Amino acid sequence: MQLVSVAALAENRAIGRDGEVPWPHIEADVRQYRERVAGSPVILGRRTFDSMLDDLPGSRQIVVSRSVDSVDVPTAVVADGVDSALERAEEIVADGDDSDDDTDSDDAVYVLGGGAIYELFQPHLDRMVLSHVTGSYDGDTFYPAWDRDEWTVAAETAYDRFTLREWVRSGDAA
Rank of each mutant, 00 (worst) to 15 (best):
D50A: 09
D80C: 00
R66G: 14
V78N: 09
G58Q: 01
D54G: 10
A38K: 03
P24C: 05
R47Y: 05
Y33D: 02
I43W: 12
I62A: 01
P57S: 12
S40W: 02
L44W: 14
S40P: 13
S67M: 03
S67Q: 03
D55C: 14
Q61E: 08
R47G: 04
E20V: 04
R36M: 12
R36P: 07
Q61C: 15
R46P: 12
D72Y: 04
S65I: 01
R66E: 14
Y33A: 03
E35C: 07
D29C: 02
D50F: 06
R46A: 11
A79C: 12
R34Y: 01
G58L: 00
R46Y: 15
D29R: 04
S65P: 15
F49E: 01
V73G: 02
D50C: 06
Q32A: 09
V63K: 03
R31E: 07
E27F: 11
M52D: 02
V71S: 00
D29T: 09
D69N: 13
R31W: 00
A79K: 14
L56P: 00
V30S: 07
R66I: 12
P74T: 05
P24F: 08
S59I: 03
W23F: 08
I26E: 00
A76H: 02
D55E: 15
D80E: 15
F49Y: 14
D54N: 11
D80G: 05
L44Q: 15
P22T: 03
S65Y: 14
D50E: 04
L53E: 02
A79W: 01
Q32M: 11
A28K: 08
M52Y: 04
V42M: 10
T48K: 10
E27N: 12
G45F: 13
T48A: 06
R47Q: 06
V77E: 12
L56S: 07
R66Q: 14
P57Y: 11
T48F: 12
P41C: 04
H25K: 05
A76I: 07
V37Q: 13
V42I: 13
V71R: 05
G39L: 04
I43H: 11
P22W: 00
V73H: 12
L56Q: 05
G58R: 11
E27H: 06
L56I: 03
S51H: 06
W23L: 06
V21P: 03
V30G: 07
